[in-house]
Write a protein that binds this DNA or RNA. Structure first.
Lengths: 250, 250
DNA sequence: GTCTATACACCGATAGAC
DNA sequence: GTCTATCGGTGTATAGAC
């Protein structure tokens, strides 16, 4: 899952060398983050970990922000991959869509939690306090990763329903303004969600994310090892509550 | 809502002076956090903002951590107060308990969100990336504040039900270990919650918190001003889904 | 491509004069 | 109680030799 694997022309020797060096730097940076947290990331520290001097790094990353952008992008990619894989292997092994029992959805949420708990500092990097003086490149690869993640959950949650069913999901009525805003949110997507379904997906995202954030950031330590069970139960309920709101096929 | 209002003996002149100075420092620190974020907090910066030198501050706070502890405690208190007030004024004006329609609960969650959105940096201070090299005093005032917050939501959610009803809440069965862990979690509390109710409260906490965190940390900016409406809808659904799981009185 | 050297900022904390 | 001075450390970034 390297960040820079474009299926382009074969790389020259110099380019290959450079790619190797970049990879080493990224690995060292991730190791440093894992140990000291995202806020403590500095080019000097990474250089120290590599036995290099700072200036060598400047040759590969023009600034700290550039390195950060690479790290953040890669983190999003890794998280999405983990969720994707959890959904696929946990979802009854069916090819596409959900088996109907929602096992894939619960597995996906557990994959999300598991990755976050296993990589707390990298999770903080993307979902913790926004880093000061760092502006993410707008509409960059992160936006794309978020879309992919959303697509996984969307498939697991709503894969078995028709557009009409989803449109008729029973939720408190949305204002016309909001519905209008949600409609063209992804005009290119053929499987665009009706506003009600989007609202349910969004709410569920917050639910899952909130439980994980509280755990990873240390606010639920009093629950010890039982957090996994409570998380699973919550996600089962979440799934049931969403499905209950979607009418049966006519 | 000052932090150091103990109902003790009347303060001497020296103590009053000191209290005023401490308050000024805390205010300046909060102003600095509001502008530059929690991570950028330093004694020097606060001193600059006050036109003092660093050493004057050391006279009131022996270290940066001491100042941080004060700030964090005050932040918890302020957030709880905001939620409490929202619950009271939004909850149909009844004296205690809930009016039965759950308006108080929704109002409390909206108070939580509103405070967080209005004070994003202070919210980050307590719920963002844990500050490195800062160890919160164990079992300190923050633990107490969390308990008070939990009590508010508990009252709004479960105030109208009997212990037996709450015990019979329909959720996927919890493991005996978890139930045992949850039982003695607050042995002193006469209104202790049954495990099933605690699980629902916990799940709801994560739900509410997750939506707020995503918003405050900038992950839902694509929704613009509609986030308030989506939040409200989510919390209404959350309330309905919890109540649906609690059986009617026999 | 990597090095030394350097400029210039920040920080927490302490010593000691007044 | 506030000051100056200072120590020892962090960091980003640049210039120029090799």
């Amino acid at each position: 899952m390297a960040v820079d694997e474009r299926p382009a022309r074969p790389l020259s020797v110099r380019e290959r060398r450079r790619a190797v060096a970049v990879r080493e730097i990224v690995d060292a940076a991730e190791a440093h983050i894992a140990e000291h947290g995202p806020a403590a990331l500095s080019l000097r520290a990474v250089a120290r970990g590599l036995g290099m001097t700072v200036q060598a790094l400047y040759h590969y990353f023009p600034s700290r922000d550039a390195l950060l952008t690479t790290l953040i992008t890669k983190t999003y990619d890794d998280l999405v991959a983990a969720v994707q894989e959890a959904a696929d292997t946990g979802g009854a092994g069916e090819g596409d869509g959900d088996g109907g029992d929602g096992a894939g959805f619960v597995a996906a949420t557990e994959g999300y939690r598991r990755w976050a708990v296993a990589n707390p500092e990298r999770f903080q990097l993307i979902y913790g306090t926004p880093l000061r003086y760092y502006a993410a490149p707008a509409e960059g690869p992160t936006t794309q990763a978020v879309r992919r993640m959303s697509a996984v959950f969307e498939r697991e949650l709503f894969g078995g329903y028709t557009y009409e069913q989803l449109m008729a999901a029973e939720i408190p009525p949305l204002s016309p303004e909001l519905s209008a805003h949600l409609g063209p949110l992804r005009p290119d997507d053929p499987g665009a969600l009706p506003p009600a379904a989007f609202a349910l997906l969004f709410s569920g995202w917050g639910h899952m994310h909130g439980l994980v954030v509280l755990e990873v950031f240390g606010h639920t330590s009093f629950l010890g090892e039982h957090r996994a069970e409570l998380f699973r139960m919550s996600m089962r309920n979440l799934l049931a509550d969403i499905r209950r709101r979607i009418p049966d096929a006519a």
